[in-house]
């Protein structure tokens, strides 16, 4: 059983298909989701997080079809939206506790799980501070803490490294590598170097569908010196993206 099994997935937003006949199979490990702005990464992550209904196609998450009872799947799901709001007057610990409650964790497990999640993102010393006193990078880390508090089997992180400084990004890569041992971790990012360093597997998306799936090394071999980019993997990225969408300076 794969954690994510999508076949011919279509998600219509307004007049266009943000996700267009996408097929994808992902199991345990750390998977990077790359693609230009507007490629449909966020819509795909939202659909996988079960907050967006697919228009067509089939989707199965952790072996359960994602159109029936969502509750059992959601209990094993961790989700960090790209722009997530929080409650400013909550203490960091209360924020993660509240999300743990929403995830229907057993009451007795919550304090221990919250403590551990905050330790893993390095926020233990800020646990009793208000959310509004945190810096952008710390808020992001609190968001990661709520995503991992229920030890999810499927972890979906939409742009989790935005606002993290270089040292925090390194620590974050260690954390996801650790989490990828037991769970399926999907990280959407526009930072190619994040993928090269942290991911075992890359999914490249353009115009709503998957244009490449393989290891970071495979992605690097797709590029030649004529393609734009500072590293082999960046050149591979531009080779695969520009082959699909010809024209346009951006």
């Amino acid at each position: 059983m794969q954690a994510i099994e999508a076949d011919g997935l279509v998600v219509r937003l307004g007049r266009r298909n943000a996700v267009d006949r996408l097929s994808l199979r992902l199991g345990r490990g750390v998977h990077g989701l790359l693609g230009p702005n507007g490629a449909g990464k966020t819509t795909l992550i939202r659909t996988l997080a079960t907050v967006q209904s697919p228009t067509a196609g089939t989707l199965s998450l952790l072996g359960t079809p994602a159109n029936g009872k969502l509750r059992p799947v959601r209990q094993k799901l961790g989700y960090l939206p790209q722009h997530f709001g929080h409650y400013k007057r909550f203490k960091v610990r209360e924020f993660v506790e509240y999300l743990a409650w929403l995830k229907e964790m057993p009451k007795k497990q919550i304090p221990g799980a919250v403590k551990e999640a905050l330790e893993r993102v390095g926020l233990s010393d800020r646990a009793e501070d208000r959310m509004k006193s945190l810096s952008g990078g710390m808020v992001r880390r609190a968001g990661i803490a709520q995503a991992i508090v229920n030890e999810p089997e499927l972890l979906l992180l939409d742009e989790p490294t935005v606002g993290l400084d270089p040292a925090q990004r390194l620590r974050f890569r260690e954390l996801v590598a650790e989490l990828g041992q037991r769970a399926c971790v999907l990280i959407s990012t526009h930072l190619v170097e994040d993928v090269a360093a942290a991911c075992t597997d890359v999914v490249l998306m353009n115009e709503g569908s998957v244009v490449f799936q393989g290891t970071p090394a495979d992605l690097a071999t797709a590029g030649t010196t004529t393609h734009v980019g500072d590293s082999p993997i960046e050149r591979g990225y531009s080779a695969l993206i520009s082959a699909k969408s010809a024209g346009g300076a951006w």
């Binding site: 939206p81 709001g85 929080h86 409650y87 995830k103």
Partner: peptide
Amino acid sequence: LDSAYELTAATPRAGLPL
């Protein structure tokens, strides 16, 4: 008005009972 709506919507408790 509820800033954490997207976090809440993805949890098992989201739905008519909540």
